[in-house]
Design a binder for these strands. Structure first.
Lengths: 337, 337
DNA sequence: CCACTATCTGACACCGGTGTCATAATGTGG
DNA sequence: CCACATTATGACACCGGTGTCAGATAGTGG
């Protein structure tokens, strides 16, 4: 059984391969009779066009690469889901490529990726969206890319972010308005720009409500549940014990909640806990976590959609947007006794 | 600035493009001097070979596709992580393609996927690994594939599974040995073969310990947290209330735990809860969930690795394996009072 | 019925690599 | 120094499509 190519179809149908190609791509200027005939041969021979050959001729792969290095699985899942939505809408596919930000091999790694499979563009998610080195490399290689949740200001490249600083401000203010003033904070991974932004939102809220910032209340996390557990221990051992904890993401907040519960503390009666991201876990546990909902899917969807537009037409204006983050109150925060 | 192709390199280096190709692929029979010269030009011109052209000539894309339709995000994450490990080891990349099992468009959808991007092979995860229709289609199209956690017996195709029935048996027996006899069960999604297997493991354990099977204790779930919440309500309202609940996965078990806690029930003192999968959430909540650890990453890793071997050499014997599932006891199950 | 335009169709080069095979250059033993 | 094996190199076809452009065919108005 021989492979069915455009040539076999052409011969079998008694037309030129160009005509077959026309039918394949729904191009005009093919008589209905011819089109019919060719379509019938497609079925008869069970022909599937070879995307690689097509890609070579058109210089397109219709594949977008998604780069990430993120301890939060749910964040990645959401990123993928947004990216896939945009991809499928435009008949693109998504190739995922987790890799480590650190290490000089990053560029080599990406170079190898590009040597292995030609990508029409790349979506950079944190912390890659903040890697100037990578951005410069992609520009040099003339690879289209879009940045998600990046803090870098670069008018030349697509960027969709949400306002982390403002979100952190709002959730901190929410705690303050509930009467809390002794509010612990757990930082995220130092490589992520969101870490600094959420931290400064926290600080701004304190400052604007005349609460002195106390560095002893700050624990170093890295967005992982595990790091949250470590930070939780440090925070719950503080004297006096803070009446509220704001963790930079929901996983770390969940770790605080777990330890607090293990220690027989009632949440939120004895201690309020707030997170960030509105990850699934925030509503899968009891009490549900008060948190900031970031439109991760939507950010990625927009970023990828714009990326695809840019690939299709280099003249497309560079899209830059900041989406809103929203406070979601659940049972884990309450009035300070 | 012109594109750098193998031709420009060849001209610039004063050799034929075939020689350049030889250097590119580390082929023998190139004099050290020539090799050196060409490598220097690579650097000078910052040449990156075009993977599409290479793919066309070699009839390879070095991309594996991963098919899934699964409500459990953590399951998918684990699948991806195992698949990526195997891919990267062999210099392959991973393209992800979630789609719906139901609907006659499935085959059309996959056909479109194959038309859009040529894949060297596909990993089928549940419920696709159990779709005879899809398997037949892929065979007809001569696409290599590997099945993960499939219940279908097909000696011709690669398959890696774990023993769900035995796992369910063991965790049910664990509950029985703790003195429980009124054990509720939440089923998974009907499209997944694991659902039936876990259910029959539950039933076998009851039978072997002379406990009458009571259909009223069985709730229909679909592996999602939400369905678990619905089932939880039905189960906790039963009279008499079961002393233990075994949910077919951890998300649904977490939903039971949440509702029980909301209703002021103490877990495990008032009711024991067991899950399946050892998803991250099982250890992120308090009390931690007793569950069955399935080696999802390892299953997928092996499946993809074998798939790649098969792609490289059609003569490779078809690999079939069943990995062991392991009982993990945490705080959510205890002796019946 | 003819001139002229609009609609089809195919020949051919091309995308950027790899495989085959012939030939050139080099090395080895007698 | 020659016969012969070995290594190095390039010419050329080929992978399976698409773009360009010229020529053929059909359609239209005078």
């Amino acid at each position: 059984m021989k492979k069915v190519t455009i040539n076999s179809v052409a011969t079998y149908a008694g037309v030129s391969k160009k005509t077959v190609s026309r039918v394949l791509n729904n191009e005009p200027n093919v008589s209905p009779a011819t089109r019919e005939k060719v379509l019938k041969v497609f079925k008869e021979l069970d022909y599937t066009p070879n995307p690689i050959a097509r890609g070579l001729a058109r210089n397109r792969s219709f594949i977008i690469g998604c780069l990430y290095d993120n301890p939060s699985k749910s964040y990645i899942t959401r990123v993928q889901s947004g990216a896939l939505e945009a991809c499928h809408k435009h008949h693109y596919n998504l190739l995922i490529h987790p890799c480590e930000l650190r290490g000089e091999e990053l560029i080599a790694n990406i170079e190898h990726l590009l040597t292995t499979s030609r990508l029409d563009g790349m979506v950079l998610t944190p912390p890659f969206s903040d890697s100037q080195e990578l951005i410069d490399f992609l520009k040099k290689k003339k690879i289209h890319f879009a940045r998600v949740a990046s803090a870098i200001d670069d008018a030349e490249s697509i960027s969709v972010r949400s306002n982390d600083e403002q979100g952190a401000y709002e959730i901190t203010e929410h705690l303050i308005k509930l009467g809390h003033s002794n509010i612990a904070f757990i930082k995220g991974h130092p490589d992520h720009s969101a870490t600094e932004q959420r931290f400064s939102g926290y600080q701004r809220a304190l400052a604007e409500h005349n609460i002195a910032f106390n560095p002893k209340l700050v624990a170093e996390g890295n967005f992982s549940y595990h790091s949250g557990a470590d930070s939780a221990k440090a925070i719950l051992d503080l004297e006096p014990r803070p009446s509220a904890v704001f963790a930079s993401n929901d996983y770390m907040a969940a770790a605080v909640l777990k330890l607090a519960t293990q220690r027989q503390l009632k949440v939120p009666q004895d201690i309020s806990i707030a997170g960030f991201d509105n990850a699934p876990i925030a509503r899968h546990i009891w009490p549900g976590l008060t948190t900031i909902a970031q439109p991760v899917e939507e950010m990625t969807r927009q970023a990828v959609e714009q990326l695809i537009l840019q690939i299709g037409d280099e003249q497309t204006p560079v899209y830059q947007a900041t989406l809103e983050a929203k406070l979601i109150t659940r049972e884990s925060t309450a009035q300070h006794k």
